[in-house]
Design a protein around this nucleic acid. Sequence first.
DNA 1: TGTTTATATAAGTATATAGTTATATACTTA
DNA 2: TAAGTATATAACTATATACTTATATAAACA
Lengths: 114, 114
Amino acid sequence: MPQTSMEIEKATIILKLLGDKTRLTMMKLIDDEACCVCELVEIFQTSQPSISQHLRKLKDLGLVKEDRRGQWIFYSVDKCNKYYPFIKPILDQIPSQEYKLKELEEKGTRISCC
Amino acid sequence: MPQTSMEIEKATIILKLLGDKTRLTMMKLIDDEACCVCELVEIFQTSQPSISQHLRKLKDLGLVKEDRRGQWIFYSVDKCNKYYPFIKPILDQIPSQEYKLKELEEKGTRISCC
DNA sequence: TGTTTATATAAGTATATAGTTATATACTTA
DNA sequence: TAAGTATATAACTATATACTTATATAAACA
């Protein structure tokens, strides 16, 4: 029996969003810790608009929330969102991506930006 | 901490596969009960090649198994597959699709075919 | 063995999606 | 207030994907 039964249409949309390597990795990363856009740009070695567009899609569904701190906007998984119980077991089963943040710290890029 | 840590690449591929309404519904359906291709064609009101192609993708990853019974091939979720623990919590959270099989039975299409 | 039924595959098409470049917006600070 | 930095959006392009039609394969049965 379902723990939290949810519409199959919504489940499909969410799984499709998570079925992209950049977004899935990003969600795992910001499930632990808020990151700003420029950090994500550096981590994923892609363009800033590309990252913004991924975040936009996640935000449109309410999966992530933003938190402006000065000129930076920090994104993190919205654990209060009603779909969080659905995605949590998925995120829990994929390996931690914290090492990506560690790499930034070692390069000094993390501090310089945020 | 991850229960069953799995490669993020594999997780992405699986989630992308599940991020399609037909495939997700199908997986939920055949998680409970094996169905033959012609039943799935009728349930999803689409062409037979379309269903076969969806099943092919699921089978390529080992998510489903086939079982020939005479002229029919029955498909069901392969619960022994190493990725099953990953998809199980997802399937558990979406509503049962058994009513679709009930509809077939009421129409008499289920018996006539299989 | 030939015909029918069930399923798979190939090839083509239309649409969806991710990424790019260019530009706009918003905040910060000199 | 002007310049610089961070992020968002728009428009475009290239690729991926789902579906269609046509055809192949495989089993059943007359």
